[in-house]
């Protein structure tokens, strides 16, 4: 047993982190900067990461890139296209649809979904206003048409990948919110001292970091399991990871709001952009507590 990342995996993570640091939104105002999103789109397109799966990447590698994009609130599609590419290898400009709605749609043309053993594709229609300020949802246009079939096993494995990918986004956005709050706690002063010097604030941030670390561990197993365990077991691992990461991300983002005080409750603070992204990823391929069965190790 050795559950460390390989050298190649660390390199991939660093590359994704570098791109996200350079071109992700650094403020709420940046979200409306079309010039930045244009450059971001170009850079992401050039990496080929939307086709990670058809390039033979493992669930672990998908999770690493998605996490880094979540951390810096990358606001061009990745998660949706990666899942679409897993369903229809090599397909371009495609994302996924869930519950009759296309997700992660910016610049995408089609949305794929799974119905029983059939892979369906539909054109993407008008945007629907949503909670997430970094990833858009849209209506579907016309009736979806079948473009392929999936075995039961493949469908369950795909579901596991989807649950893992959304969990990775949760971990990333939580990590980003934590960094935002930690940085603020180091500079904001009240009563002549930085607020981070008060134990009440420091402990909130320490707890949040522990939640992030727990998320890393549970997610790493689930991401590995996508390709290495029988589909049912992979899905079980993914569900555990999703529940943990979702709960942790919510708490960490709430902590980030709290540490920012009054400012944290305003639109201009990035904390709620993280929180909104976390809530959206929680609802995408959701897992209910009732789905955790007794058959666990």
């Amino acid at each position: 047993m050795d559950v460390r990342l390989t050298a190649e995996q660390r390199q991939l993570r660093d590359a994704a982190a570098g791109l996200a640091d350079d071109l992700g939104p650094g403020s709420v105002l940046d979200l409306d900067d079309a010039e930045r999103t244009g450059r971001l789109e170009k850079a992401v397109g050039a990496t080929g990461w939307r086709a990670l799966r058809s390039d033979g990447a493992s669930g672990v590698e998908v999770a690493l890139v998605v996490e880094e994009f979540g951390r810096r609130l990358v606001d061009v599609p990745l998660l949706g296209p990666v899942l679409a590419d897993d369903l229809a290898p090599g397909i371009s400009s495609a994302t996924v649809a869930v519950d009759g709605r296309a997700r992660d749609t910016r610049g995408m043309r089609r949305a794929l979904s799974v119905e029983g053993d059939r892979v369906m594709s539909a054109e993407i229609g008008p945007l629907v206003p949503g909670t997430d300020l970094t990833r858009h949802a849209a209506e579907l246009r016309g009736t979806p048409e079948q473009i392929g079939t999936l075995s039961d096993e493949a469908a369950v494995r795909w579901r596991a990948l989807a649950v893992v990918a959304t969990s990775a986004d949760l971990l990333g956005t939580a990590r980003g919110a934590h960094t935002l709050a930690r940085d603020y706690a180091r500079i904001r002063e009240q009563y002549g001292r930085t607020i981070g010097s008060y134990q009440a604030v420091a402990h909130l941030l320490a707890e949040a970091l522990a939640l992030v670390e727990g998320s890393v561990s549970v997610l790493r197993h689930a991401a590995w399991a996508v390709d290495e365990l029988p589909p049912a077991e992979a899905l079980r691992a993914a569900r555990i990871a999703k529940l943990y990461c979702a709960r942790a991300a919510r708490t960490v983002c709430e902590t980030a709001v709290q540490v920012h005080g009054g400012t944290g409750n305003t639109w201009e603070c990035l904390a709620h952009v993280h929180l909104r992204r976390a809530l959206t990823s929680t609802d995408l391929f959701p897992v209910r507590l009732e789905e955790i069965d007794r058959g666990l190790s």
């Binding site: 949503g130 909670t131 997430d132 709001v257 709290q258 709620h272 809530l279 929680t282 609802d283 959701p286």
Partner: peptide, 24 residues
């Protein structure tokens, strides 16, 4: 969930309660 605007609003608004009038 994140999809019901009124309930989401109630949730987001609840976060201000630990700040306004003096933080927790």
């Amino acid at each position: 969930g994140a999809g019901d605007p009124d309930l989401l609003h109630a949730y987001l608004y609840s976060r201000a309660q630990s700040v306004m009038g003096g933080t927790s």
